[in-house]
Write a protein that binds this DNA or RNA. Sequence first.
DNA 1: TTCTAGACATTGGACGTCCCATCTCCTGTA
DNA 2: TACAGGAGATGGGACGTCCAATGTCTAGAA
Lengths: 243, 243
Amino acid sequence: MAIASQEVSPARFSAQLRSHALQTRIMDLILERSLDVGDALPTESELSTELGVGRNTVRESLKVLQALGVIEIRHGFGMFVAPNNFGALVSGLTFRGRLSLRHKGEEAMELIDVRQALESGLIGSAIDLLTDEHLADLRSTMEAMENAAKKGEPLYELDAEFHRRLYAPLSNDLLINLMDVFWQVYRTIHLALGSGPVNLEQQTQDHWDIFEAVANKDKALAFERLQRHFDGIRLKLKDVAAA
Amino acid sequence: MAIASQEVSPARFSAQLRSHALQTRIMDLILERSLDVGDALPTESELSTELGVGRNTVRESLKVLQALGVIEIRHGFGMFVAPNNFGALVSGLTFRGRLSLRHKGEEAMELIDVRQALESGLIGSAIDLLTDEHLADLRSTMEAMENAAKKGEPLYELDAEFHRRLYAPLSNDLLINLMDVFWQVYRTIHLALGSGPVNLEQQTQDHWDIFEAVANKDKALAFERLQRHFDGIRLKLKDVAAA
DNA sequence: TTCTAGACATTGGACGTCCCATCTCCTGTA
DNA sequence: TACAGGAGATGGGACGTCCAATGTCTAGAA
């Protein structure tokens, strides 16, 4: 590769720093070339040549960047700058959660605290920005939830969608992604615990109550009902963990 | 483990799923063997044998798990279950932030919104749980900040520490880690933008104001001042981004 | 002319092997 | 007893080779 001449640093840096540096170099390369979401990166071989490191080494870094949601790798096609993707957090946090559940399940509770703070802290702004269209979306989700509850189907996805749409008015992608992550982690942990009997009607009613407060643009009531909603979740989790 | 026999699946699954599955298998292995934080994992070669895949392949997954903060790799020594570590988010989110700054810097603003919601949403509970000891810690941080400001030194780390200690009473590691991540991302973006002149006195005074409200256990005032603090940050960022 | 099936090129995925870098620990010497 | 140096183990890195997946292009049939 004849890069050795400029590569220098035969190992003056700790290995951890070296591989992290490689990841950074790839990200910088993306930024320098003004690649945007959806644009293609050079091929693995090209990167290997350009960066002066072996293809396997590049691949390790690329895999990491994929896990971090920076790039998207499509077998046989190429690599592309990825759209916002927080799948990484899901894996990492879920592992943390499961690890902690062996002890006391504290981290699952922490997760709920964070969700509660985020959601009840932002409900006011969300209501401020709420349009009739948003409200119609919310209502249709609620109707779907009610139908699903009557059929005894699990409400996981609809529940998540309700919360997602509740904060859609803020058009804050980071927030939506974070909430999704927390939701998925919570769901995984909950399933791993072997969820007890779930009261679908109660769950649906909780959401209707929140919906009503939001529809009336009653911030205080919405805040209060959201808090209660999470208190309920927290209690249920405690029961399940104790069992 | 003799998994190879059942491994089969010559490639019926998309490649992405395969490598993700490997990561999951390694995490499951950790959980099954009841390894806890700090415990050593099998060596790369052992994992390669046990999981029935090549060492390079295992290495790629291990690197990903390291990036996700699941394990810690120490060259020449071994691999260990890592303590809570959100370094992953920092890299990923920072990249996102820098990517978006080329356009309008929206994501940096989203980040501040999330921080604001988290901090102002939780300040009440934090004050409830605040002890004299916590308050003493906070005060010493403030004094250090004031000294640093007088010397004209940057307040980055002290600022972060103030917020970290502010929420220490909640003993919610997830929250502290998230706040740290947001902080680091914000700081990196801010530095990348080439921060304008910073008013150290004003920054210190802001924090003293918050401290005062917290010390008096005045939740409403603390909430209000935190909100104003973040509004100030938001304005400053807007100025810098416009320039 | 148009549509479809198959060949082909491109690109990532997996693996084996070899050697280097770094760490820990133990042994020997002062 | 304390320090220095070496041995062994373990991760880091680089190639080279072959496999698999995907998109495209072309030839043939309707």
